[in-house]
């Protein structure tokens, strides 16, 4: 496939935003339980929500560049029964609005106790809203990843690992961002977010390596024989039916050399996983906000490369009909 930058930015930006929300929510749960209480947690939640909102809007903006007719985008919410793309279009604004509501409740300090299951446990309004939003964040990871995992013809994508990787890498970048924010606010509990970021990055490293291993050993179902229905091992295309190019040669081929694709693979392995983990460890030991911000910046750039590779690696069976390109 030819990687489209609109989709690369969309998936990485919203992935980080969802991860950041999950980090904020984890912070609130710990705070409500009285484990990690920070004096400035209201600032943390409101700044965090502001960042989430900006990332989600930027992602949404990027996605419009993918559409030929963006003015008709409202129609996409209609076929949610069958299409993962439609489901994403519904869950994405739902998550954003709920996250904003959660942030506003924190900012305004509206936080009445909704119910108390026991005398000592009190469930507040922000907790209820936050847990619902966290559910939507997880659902959005599922919807985004299933858009790709549901295309059974692209065997590199049609696998549960796609969903696992989108979730893990989004959460890793979101938790790294939360560590940067917490450190910038001078939180005592920065180490807690940073440790989660390290843990999630390492888990993501393992699952991404698993999918790289799987994709390197894939046996393609379609070949030239099944494509044109002629039983002969030697089939060579001499003409693909167009002199210049066509939509089929532009959309489904990245036209890059193997060396470029391979170097981007190594680039993302280093920048998504190895350098950020090193910087996060360094940040925890030195308690330095700049190091955490740098960790997020490097990881995000790495994720852009990771997503590029994700698309470039996908081999679509239609390419057999355009092998003469």
């Amino acid at each position: 496939m030819n990687p489209a930058f609109s989709v690369i930015f969309l998936t990485t930006l919203i992935g980080a935003a969802q991860g950041l929300f999950l980090a904020l929510m984890a912070g609130q749960i710990y705070s409500d339980m009285g484990v990690l209480v920070e004096a400035d947690e209201k600032l943390f939640f409101t700044y965090g929500t502001a960042i989430i909102t900006v990332l989600m809007i930027l992602g949404l903006l990027a996605s419009f560049f993918h559409l030929g007719r963006p003015e008709r985008a409202w129609r996409t919410a209609t076929k949610w029964k069958t299409s993962w793309l439609s489901r994403e279009v519904i869950v994405l604004p739902a998550f954003t609005m709920m996250a904003v509501l959660w942030g506003v409740l924190h900012y305004k300090g509206i936080n009445p106790v909704v119910f108390s299951p026991t005398d000592t446990v009190h469930i507040s309004l922000t907790m209820v809203v936050g847990l619902m939003t966290a559910g939507l964040a997880m659902l959005l990871y599922l919807c985004t990843a299933m858009i790709y995992a549901a295309v059974k013809f692209i065997q590199e994508w049609a696998n549960p690992l796609t969903v696992v990787n989108y979730t893990m890498l989004g959460m890793a970048s979101g938790f790294t961002l939360s560590a940067a924010l917490a450190s910038w606010l001078g939180f005592e509990s920065t180490f807690y977010y940073a440790n989660w970021a390290i843990f999630l990055t390492l888990i993501g490293f393992m699952t991404r390596l698993a999918s790289l291993y799987r994709n390197a050993h894939i046996k393609l179902k379609s070949n030239a024989q099944s494509a044109i229905g002629i039983r002969h091992p030697m089939i060579r295309q001499t003409s693909q039916g167009a002199m210049g190019g066509s939509f089929n040669t532009r959309e489904f081929f990245h036209h890059k050399t193997d060396a470029v694709v391979k170097s981007i693979k190594w680039f993302f392995i280093v920048t998504v996983f190895i350098i950020p983990v090193g910087l996060l460890i360094l940040g925890v030991s030195q308690d330095n906000a700049t190091v955490f911000i740098l960790a997020f910046a490097v990881q995000y750039i790495g994720l852009l490369a990771e997503r590029w590779f994700f698309f470039a690696q996908a081999r679509h069976p239609q390419n057999i009909y355009y092998a003469a390109t």
Binding site: A73, V151, F153, F247
Partner: peptide, 11 residues
């Protein structure tokens, strides 16, 4: 809307 998703889903 020209999202091209159908073209991805056609082998």
């Amino acid at each position: 809307i020209g999202c091209k998703y159908c073209s991805w889903s056609c082998p």
